[in-house]
Amino acid sequence: MIEFKNISKHFDEKQVLQDVSHIMYSGKTNLIIGTSGSGKTVLQKCLVGLYEVDGGEIIYDGLSFTKMNDEEKKMLRQQIGMLFQGSALFDSMTVEGNVKFPLDMFTKDKESEKIKKVNEVLERVNLVGTNNKLPSQLSGGMKKRVGIARAIVLNPKFLFCDEPNSGLDPQTSMLIDKLIHDVTIEFNMTTIINTHDMNSVMEIGNNIIYLKDGKKEWTGNSKDIIFSENKNLNDFIFASEFLQDAKQMRMLEAKGKKI
């Protein structure tokens, strides 16, 4: 569980986050949604300490992250997996090298066991047989998936994913959503996902926080979102006519059940 209270962050003149508070639960896929530039990436980076917050408190499983010293933060981070928006693969290493890196660093397993584990996660992200490719030889979506594989290879307690399925086709995108959802439940992870993919919101939105201009505008789950009266949220989520129709259908369905 990650709880954060009154997180604020500015860059130069610009206030990017303002008093954002929320609780992210373990065993659930917690979503941060919002338009481009609303501060999702900055919020994630504040939570893991890559950006220093101006004010507020971040609590990991009851321990105050903001009060930890560098060594304690380092120990906590060994339980964090993170997928960056730009994948951030090590470009001097192959796919296998990238995914194996955390295993090499933090486990004492035999080489053959590590390779087995690497192949397992690569299979889960649908990348069998790419072991010896370099990041420069991969497509954007493939890099994303290698990034996910690297983030989950140690079964972290806290998983951060910055737009895991941007740049993926709908089918692969669903596969990745399902994968993240499954490992979250299997290992009781606290998973935090930044997304503006409506499919993900509807499929795996257990606990959603909607950011607008760096403020928390709405929170709920994928069912609540259908009935939300919040105009900004509705405009954001149901932007296309197709999605508006879908919303109407769902609402009618739900009403029908009640009667």
Binding site: K74, Q78, I80, A88
Partner: peptide, 17 residues
């Protein structure tokens, strides 16, 4: 290059100095 492409952040976040 590692800084700009967030590779240094990725190392940091794994709990490596």
């Amino acid at each position: 290059n590692m800084r700009v492409s967030e590779q240094i952040d990725a190392i940091e976040i794994m709990g490596i100095n």
